[in-house]
Design a protein around this nucleic acid. Structure first.
Lengths: 195, 195
DNA sequence: GACAATATTGGCCAGTCGGTCAGATATTAA
DNA sequence: TTAATATCTGACCGACTGGCCAATATTGTC
């Protein structure tokens, strides 16, 4: 358990799943499709992922973790709360720009989960992690006097909502959204809400 | 063609489809499920909707049209651009509160469309209608001197993004979002961006 | 009441998919 | 070397689905 081969095989399968789902949509993606694209046999997927749901969860976790990591990393080099928030917003859009396939797959899977009770709270927990990032920074900024007094939960929720909503617009029509300007616009919005 | 029975049958099928998809998710919803819930035979669905895709498009259009109608209606009674924008935002959240099933189904179907090329521009056109509503009001408000000079497209895009993002948070965790406060928060955000 | 048009039923079929499994092959341990 | 374990394959199966259609029922028209 936890062998080297296991690790790279799982990664290979998850990566191919992302690519395939991004290209054809979750509904049109069978385990056989993923196996074919990964140039492995279908059975090996079941060997490493008990069910298709398990694989899908791994895909979602993988994307969320990657994004989260990048956000935290880029926020760390900033000193002010305002700077950290801006860096967090920027990190979201940078990740989008560099991983369109992953985002397309993510949005596709996202909604297919929204009705499954067992995954419901799993996902809301994930969400809380994203919003929590902004909420803590807002609270810290208020304490330091960097920000004016606001409802930190609501404000964080709105910032995250704007990011997600913009992501969806960009998924549906890549040309209609200039990621750099969108990122700047939301950073500006956050500033206006907090100062 | 266009008979009375056709109209109510189609409506009945679409309504039942919304209910069923909201309950079980699109992936787990077969034509037979919808027929059973509507207490009609499976064949009659194919009779009125040539393919499953046709039905799904009707569902999406139905929800979009309902929402759009309510937005325009509520904005019409306001006189200022600021008032119209606030009314438009409120209308979104009112509709959500009163039609949770429709929104759940909508989000579920939304992504299942995002990868189909033929439906891609259809959906971006729909999106443009939503954002266009805000964009025109912002432009009008700037002309009247009600608002300061901003990028109307970007600002409209951000407002719509915040609404959609909040909708998703609410879909995933109904308890985590207070729709009334969220609505107020986004109206306030719009004011801050425009004044 | 006869007759066409419309509306409705439910069974059928071909195709697809997720998951299983017996067995082949490769790797490791003893 | 050999035994044991891990990895991998591809065929197979039961379940399900969308679309089709022949048959039946209902409605409207003269």
């Amino acid at each position: 358990m936890g062998s080297f081969i296991e690790k790279i095989r799982k990664e290979q399968i998850v990566n191919t799943a992302i690519m395939t789902i991004a290209r054809n949509g979750f509904i049109n993606t069978s385990l056989e499709d993923i196996a074919r694209n990964a140039e492995i046999s279908k059975g090996i997927i079941s060997y490493y992922f008990k069910t298709k749901d398990t694989l899908i969860c791994s895909v979602i976790n993988r994307i969320m973790d990657d994004l989260q990591e990048e956000i935290i990393e880029k926020a760390a080099v900033e000193s002010t709360c305002s700077g950290k928030i801006a860096a967090g917003i920027t990190a979201n859009f940078d990740y989008m720009a560099e991983n369109r396939q992953a985002i397309v797959a993510f949005v596709d899977l996202w909604s297919s989960i929204s009705t499954k009770d067992d995954k419901h709270d799993y996902n809301s927990r994930v969400y809380e992690k994203c919003i929590g990032f902004f909420k803590r920074l807002i609270a810290a900024g208020m304490e330091k006097g960097e920000f004016k007094q606001v409802d930190s939960g609501l404000t964080a929720s709105i910032i995250q909502a704007a990011i997600d909503g913009m992501m969806i617009q960009w998924i549906f029509n890549e040309q209609s959204v200039d990621l750099r300007r969108a990122s700047g616009g939301i950073i500006h919005m956050a500033e206006r809400l907090l100062r």
